[in-house]
Design a protein around this nucleic acid. Sequence first.
DNA 1: AATGCCACGTA
DNA 2: CGTACGTGGCATTC
Length: 904
Amino acid sequence: MAPVTTSARTGTGTQGTRLLLIDGHSMAYRAFYALPDTLATSSGQVTNAVYGFASMLTNLLRDEQPTHVAVAFDAGRVTFRTERYAEYKATRDATPEVFRGQVPLIREVLEALRVPALQREGIEADDILATLARQGAEAGMEVLVCSGDRDALQLVTDRVTVLYPKKGVSELSRMTPAAVEEKYKVAPERYPDLAALVGETSDNLPGVPGVGPGVAAKWITQFGDLDSLLERQDELTGKRGEALREHAAQVRLNRELNALLTDVELPLGIDDLAVAGFDREAVHRVSDALQFGALRDRLLAVDPAGHEADAAPGDAVRVTLHDGDLASWLAAHAGRRVGLDVSGVARPGLGDAWQVALATGSDAGEASAVVVDLADLDGAQEESLRSWLADAAAPKAVHGAKSAWHMLASRDLDLHGVTFDTELAAYLCYPDQRGYDLADLVLRHLGRDLAAADDAAQGALDLELDAAAPGSEAAARAVAVVDLAEALDPGLDDRGARSLLDDVEMPLSAVLARMEATGIATDTDFLGGLEASFAQAVATSAAEAYDVIGREVNLGSPKQLQEVLFDQLAMPRTKKIKTGYTTDAASLQDLFTRTEHPFLAHLLAHRDAAKLRTTVEGLLKAVHPDGRIRTTFQQTIAATGRLSSTDPNLQNIPIRTEAGRRIRQAFRVGEGYDVLLTADYSQIEMRIMAHLSGDEGLIEAFRSGEDLHRYVGSRVFDVDPAAVTSEMRAKVKAMSYGLAYGLSAYGLSQQLTIPTGEAQALMDDYFTRFGGVRDYLTGVVEEARATGYTATILGRRRYLPDLTSDNRQRRQMAERMALNAPIQGSAADIIKLAMLGVQHAIDAQELRSRLLLQVHDELVVEVAPGERDAVEALLRDQMGAAVRLDVPLDVSVGSGTTWHDAGH
DNA sequence: AATGCCACGTA
DNA sequence: CGTACGTGGCATTC
């Protein structure tokens, strides 16, 4: 095995106190010019200065381990220097706006890190640093001054080191007395003498012409210091001596100006600069807003109060592969949380598993793992594995326990005792992320490259194990899962997501696994018949369409359709899209009412039939040999907390049209079961809106038992409920639902095909009657803007950094998301709780009936003989009591042999 | 073969 | 100029 390597920290870890002082502007400015302005958030906010600054600060905190930290900023344009010499810094270009805009962001970062930022009107940052450096040195501290201003070099002593940026902001030179002497050939305290002679272009301080650092150093060494030199300037001969005499006044002025003040009065004393733990919540908020990815984690990793993982990021981990049997490994690590990695295929009902890796987390760079092949397991080994996997008291960390469940199920292995699912945890922390690939998360949170461990040829492995050994990758993943669990732990608490993980998502994943494995019975003959019938409709409508235009085109090609509609038939143009003009159903319908062109009718019929046909085809392909269809419920996709359904999607089976609804007749109760039962929440989102807004009118609407839209309509139109026409009801219904999506008056007018003015009036009337709703909706956006996130009734957060975007479109999009996320997300929370309650009740009553599907506000259950009443009762109970709102949760239940018939 | 876009199904 | 998804077909790109 390869030898153990440890990555040493560069900090020496001395006892005593170490004060880190940073010149904020100077370092930020360095970062600004060192990093490309392509570093920006998606909304266009350039972040190169703030990113570079934060990155530098992170490195300093990590490498120097200071006990005290402060950052100083310049404040005010007028300083004693400009008053003394108007031309001071006069040649500097105006600060670029792109830089200036980032300074407040840097302050926000500092605030989140609880690093004091100091400034004083009329005083430059360097003077503040000089003052603090003096105080620190006098207090016996080791002082580090980080500044890109060479004037700071005068502060260097055996106690004070200047960290001067060498390249960008990531490489800093340690300017000790010896280093200053080496570089400038004068002692640090003489450096300002030298600078006075040489001049400083950036400060607009001219030096003595013809005198560079070399000559200046020689003079200073020769005469001792600048004062002596100027006193005895007549001793100098030649051109340079003449030049000095000519510019002596300027040199004196330079020296006066480059002397740093060491007695500035400051609001904070040294003791106030002691490092404090980060405001982790704020770190997340700022990182979200600035879209810090890896930097967020690097920041959190250096939190002085942070719960650091055993292995510091990037540390090498040595994994020992146990070659003994499973039982002895398990015995050796009893009671510890074990990482589990299963290799195989995770398809519900069609899964497979061939290898299982178990591992401890890494501890001081050491981890232990055992890998077993499921194919060649002897009886005793298999029994050890089986009982450990099924042991609810044996704590396990898994990345995606539901997938592992399906793989293990293929070998009749049951999985219990998952106490941490890193995939679900990552989802709760970053719900807007695209994916939660283990290797990506490990790279981001542990700074460890799992992909590199895959490659045996790779020289520098982060994970040191015999990469050629079978199962080494699996072992590496299993170790990483445990370490990742540790790393995600604090973030989970920071976001208040602990209970969501422990009490909702993790238990739910077990429920979902069972639902997926169960599947829903389908009538393939019926589906086959539907396919033929829809195919017939497609053929007929296509033929009729071709007949009208006199040629055959691909009706499924928007491009060819545009040609036919807008060129050949010269119809009025529709709404513009990227590739021309839309041919969507609403526009075609609109064109049809205007032109009554028969082609449009045939085209629309063709669209409908073609869509239904492909839906049926997809379902047919998804039927398993036992006649059931098994979807996968994705639990980490929807940023609001909803589930989604794939392979196939059973959450978008048609219901609105009669033809579409027929597809639901293909989903039927299975052999040995009595009936399908569907239970859905009625108007759950509106009820949540009533609850969250506390609007008395809306709450009363639900308590009255009156039809919601009729009730609301009577208030909006100021008529008796009985006098609400169906047209009025439709308008109010569209508006009520639209509100939860951030619908505009224009959007409402489009949907209802009424003038914008009328739509606006409708909304105004609505808000007059239901002012609490308006206040809630504006309040929820305001709060999200302030906190950076929205929250559901269970505290599920969605971070929306774009709420503060300068880009109007992005900002408004974020605002609509902020309106909708608490409502949609709370509904998701509620049905998730209901599912847990339903499954629990089924188990507790030892019923055979089983949950099959969830469609956002609906559950489908397959009812075993004789359990119909019990199941209906428990569905009503559990769904109705999932949470306590200020309005009742209404549940309606239907039953039938097919999903179609069970619907209502 | 992979990707982007359009269109459309659900809540 | 209405949120959240997944899928399939077409067209374009590699």
